[in-house]
Design a binder for these strands. Structure first.
Length: 449
RNA sequence: GCCUGGGUAGUAUAGCCAGGUUAGUAUACCGGCCUGUCGAGCCGGUGACCCGGGUUCAAAUCCCGGCCCAGGCGCCA
């Protein structure tokens, strides 16, 4: 059997010569397609079979009187989501309103499907949790492919932007030996009888690569949070696009890189995913740069003027985040903005404080469509300051020595951030639950399938 | 982790407050009808009260515990 690759990389073999969307319009053309049976309908003297592959739907039309008896029998025996390979001919006149019409000459059943455990048509829309129990079947719903195509473009738009600016792609360890970072709980693992942890952020190792002189790096990879968060926007396992860069003058340099990166992702989606955006009913606009920036402590006054009082020095809560988003949308007509100069009290030891007013840290968040996309900022690179901040946080200096020691041997001023890929996808496609935009989400009560 | 609401056929829901006939509906599935369907239509059929305990003559319904889910909060990407 001769096999050859099409320009699009599809192996032309016995089961398939064309993806459905590739079928030529020329009447009389014979093609072989393969896919899942979407529907079988018998109407009077006709049998219709819809076959779907990832590119679209084809309708097979059989005239009972004209088609071979065996073929009619096979067609009538088909069930929803049987897997078939079909040889068919493009008809003279196309009458199907949905999809591409074919007159089948041969139908091979590759696999039979039992009654589906979930609804993938939307007629009796299945709840998310049940869909996730049956995720591989749920993912057959074309809306899901659209979501992950959009995610693909977001990530590629960002990584290609980073590559074009000389950022080095790196892979830092997922298993770490010390629970060094304050904040989220970490998953413990057994490491040859010793206690180890799954990282909650690749943050500290990225900084060590700045110490190493890599200058500009990025990493796309997972992080884990052992927090029992029951919300529509948290996962126990999520992926980020993390960036770190050296020789910045302050955190605003980090913001300029982050907004360009963010916009590069959105632009790529608009370029490549018009169809998918339309299928999902999503409207997308690219925010104007530079993005608006709100700073502490002025933020307390803004919130106060909106009727929300946060104690001076305290962190923002969920409602504040929403109020600030609303404020920025009204005042600056922007869906995205930065929050800067968080209180040092609510941030980890490694952030850089403002020397003249050390209550505040050079810590930034990017908020988009009311949702936090990332945290980042300028890091403290001065050894004495790092050690002092470890002490201020009440941490045991020995426990972070593996990290802090390296800063005695020269460290460029640097900063960075980590954009949550699922958060960004969720905001772009307008999903109401983050688990919608993860293939196989991990949540406190779910780690299967 | 806290608060509120929930768990009924494969899926999605009604019934629960005011305990008592064959637990209703839609969709899916099976069978039949229909001269082109395209959210097809019409007729018939199969199929369910989360688990454990308690109250009662009698529990899907009331009470207690467990597990799970949704939303909100906290934590954060």
């Amino acid at each position: 059997m001769t096999r050859l690759l099409t320009p699009r990389g599809l192996v032309r073999d016995v089961k398939r010569t064309h993806e459905i969307a590739e079928i030529p319009e020329e009447p009389g053309t014979t093609v072989r397609i393969a896919g899942f049976v979407e529907n079988v309908k018998e109407v009077g003297r006709l049998v219709f079979v819809w076959v779907r592959d990832r590119s679209g739907i084809a309708q097979l039309t059989l005239r009972k009187a004209e088609a071979p008896e065996d073929l009619v029998r096979v067609a009538k025996s088909l069930n929803t989501h049987d897997v078939v390979s079909v040889v068919g001919v493009v008809p003279e006149r196309r009458e199907a309103k949905v999809g591409i019409e074919l007159i089948p000459k041969e139908v091979e059943v590759l696999s039979r499907a039992e009654r589906l455990p979930i609804d993938v048509t939307g007629a009796a829309a299945t709840q998310l949790d049940t869909r996730l129990d049956w995720r591989p079947i749920d993912l057959r719903n074309p809306r899901n492919l659209a979501v992950f195509r959009i995610q693909q473009s977001l990530v590629r738009g960002m990584t290609e932007w980073l590559e074009s600016r000389g950022f080095v792609q790196v892979f830092t360890p997922c298993i770490i030996g010390a629970p060094s970072e304050s904040g989220a709980e970490m998953f413990e693992i057994d490491y040859f009888g010793k206690r180890a942890y799954l990282r909650q952020d690749p943050q500290l190792h990225r900084q060590l690569l700045m110490v190493a002189g890599f200058d500009r790096i990025y990493e796309v990879g997972p992080s884990w949070r052992a927090e029992p968060s029951h919300t529509p926007r948290h996962l126990c396992e999520h992926r980020g696009c993390a960036v770190e860069l050296s020789y910045i003058s302050d955190e605003t340099d980090v913001m300029r890189v982050e907004e360009e990166l963010f916009i590069a992702g959105l632009k790529r989606v608009l370029e490549e995913r018009t169809r998918e955006l339309e299928a999902l009913g999503v409207e997308l606009e690219v925010p104007r740069t530079p993005l608006p920036e709100l700073r502490f402590p002025e933020i307390y006054e803004i919130l106060s003027s909106m009727g929300k009082d946060i104690r001076y020095g305290d962190d923002l809560d969920r409602e504040s985040e929403r109020l600030l988003s609303q404020y920025v949308l009204e005042k600056y007509k922007s869906e995205a903005f930065f929050i800067n100069r968080f209180p040092f009290a609510v941030k980890p030891f490694y952030v850089m404080r403002v020397d003249e007013d050390p209550t505040w840290a050079r810590s930034i968040d990017l908020v988009y469509r009311g949702l936090e996309m990332s945290s980042g900022g300028q890091r403290e690179h001065r050894y004495e300051k790092i050690v002092e901040q470890v002490r201020l946080k009440g941490m045991n200096p020995e426990s972070v020595k593996w990290f802090t020691e390296f800063f005695r041997y020269g460290a460029p001023p640097h900063g960075g951030f980590n954009i949550g890929i699922e958060r960004l996808t969720m905001a772009v496609v307008g999903a109401s639950n983050i688990r919608e935009v993860v293939l196989f989400p991990r949540a406190p009560e779910r780690f299967m399938p």
